[in-house]
C-alpha cells in the first residue's frame, strides 16, 4: 500500500472514530524545551506569554534534592496566579534519579490561560530542576 493511501486510510479511521468532520491537518505545534531551576518558594518562569496564545505543556520532568511540592500556574504578569495543576509532590528518596517524569502526550497535559505566562511555583522551596516541553497553541 502506498504511503499516501495508508495516510488517507488512517485519516479516515481517525475521523470515523472521533466523529470529526474536518480533514486531518499537517500542522504540529512547534514544541520547545525550557529548563527550570527553583531554589526558593518564589515562582519561576517556564514560558513567557504570547498575545492570544496559551502555553500548553506536552511533557515534563522534575528532579529534586530531597522533598518538594510544586505546581504549575498561569500568571498574568502582575498579581494573579491561577493553578494549572494541583500540588505535585516529588521525593528524590522514592525514585532516585528520576523523581517525576511525565511522558509526551500529543494533546498536552495542561496549559496556561490565554495570553498568560506559565510558571513553576515551588511550595517548599527545595532545590528543584527539570525540563518542560511546551508549545504555544
Amino acid at each position: 500500500m502506498s504511503l499516501a493511501r495508508d495516510r488517507r486510510r488512517g485519516s479516515y479511521q481517525a475521523r470515523r472514530l472521533f466523529g470529526l468532520q474536518k480533514p486531518l491537518g499537517d500542522v504540529v505545534p512547534t514544541i520547545q524545551r525550557a529548563t527550570v531551576l527553583s531554589f526558593d518558594a518564589v515562582p519561576k518562569l517556564v514560558a513567557a506569554a504570547q498575545a492570544g496564545m496559551r502555553v500548553r505543556v506536552y511533557q515534563y520532568e522534575l528532579f529534586v534534592i530531597g522533598l518538594d511540592v510544586v505546581k504549575f500556574q498561569s500568571w498574568d504578569g502582575a498579581a494573579a496566579f491561577t493553578d494549572a495543576t494541583g500540588d505535585i509532590g516529588i521525593d528524590a528518596a522514592r525514585n532516585r534519579g528520576l523523581p517525576l517524569h511525565v511522558g509526551y502526550s500529543p494533546v498536552g497535559h495542561f496549559q496556561s490561560l490565554v495570553g498568560q505566562h506559565l510558571v513553576l511555583a515551588p511550595v517548599l522551596g527545595t532545590v528543584t530542576t527539570g525540563n518542560v516541553w511546551y508549545a504555544y497553541v
Binding site: 470529526l20 474536518k22 494533546v107 498536552g108
Partner: peptide, 16 residues
Amino acid sequence: INLLDVVPDVLFAKLI
C-alpha cells in the same frame, strides 16, 4: 499527523 485535530476539544483540569 496533528492529534489536536483528531481529538477534538481537549480540556484540562487540575486534580486536587
